[in-house]
Amino acid sequence: MTRPAHFIAHTGRVSLAAIEEMGYQFTLFAESLYWLIAGPFVSQPVRLSAVADEMMKIGVLAVPVVVLLSFSNGVMMAIQGIATLQEFDAESQVVPGIAYSVTREFGVLIAAIVVAGRSGSAIAARIGSMQMSQEIDALRVMGIEPVRHLVAPILLAMLLMMPVLTLLADSAALIGGGLYTGIVLKLSLSTFIDRCFDTLAVYDLMQGLVKSLVFGILIALIACSNGFSVTGGSEGLGRATTRSVVLSIAAIVVADMIFTYFLNR
């Protein structure tokens, strides 16, 4: 084959594989929803203990990192905001600046990236090693649907914990920004918080929360699908884990852009 033909063939193969993967992720999503809703009626319920376990691993254990990063991010935004606004003698406008960008963008983004890094890799590695040691086959031949047993609890836990982590991230960032602003502009924290609430509408918080649900779904599906499709031994497992984190973060940022565009028109 000639070089251009090679290139076209390669592009075609890659695109097909990508579409196939998205289709697979969509079926994982549809099947998980099916088991979550219909499972109890066909006596194959999604175990609440499994959901609680995942909530712990995905959500609760991520709290320290999310809070630390969000707090630092809040301080950072206050520093940059005050420095930029000083040129226009408008330092006091730093409060709405921080309040908007944290609730609409950065809170949820930081929460999602931390979860993608922690749980995106952990989930892909766990499901991938189960695939390698035939544990997934074992589930199937026992008459236990792997999607119900493994994916549905992860998806539900993501949907429950991502908004919580986002709210935590929002608060930590606002407190961080508030403390720095308070020190530099002699504004008390309570005044800062009051002015935040004056600025913010429910809509701003909702923007972050809606996005957190979408990001949670993306992370769960990308991590699970990469885990299930592990082939080729421990090297394949490593590849799937890396791929899961990179793709999750890429999907989060791109989805964020698309959502922000439509939510702010």
Partner: peptide, 14 residues
């Protein structure tokens, strides 16, 4: 499948 048992090569224990 509940009437079938399988012992996998590597055990496949959880």
């Amino acid at each position: 499948r509940q009437r079938i048992g399988v012992s996998f090569q590597g055990g496949a224990l959880f």
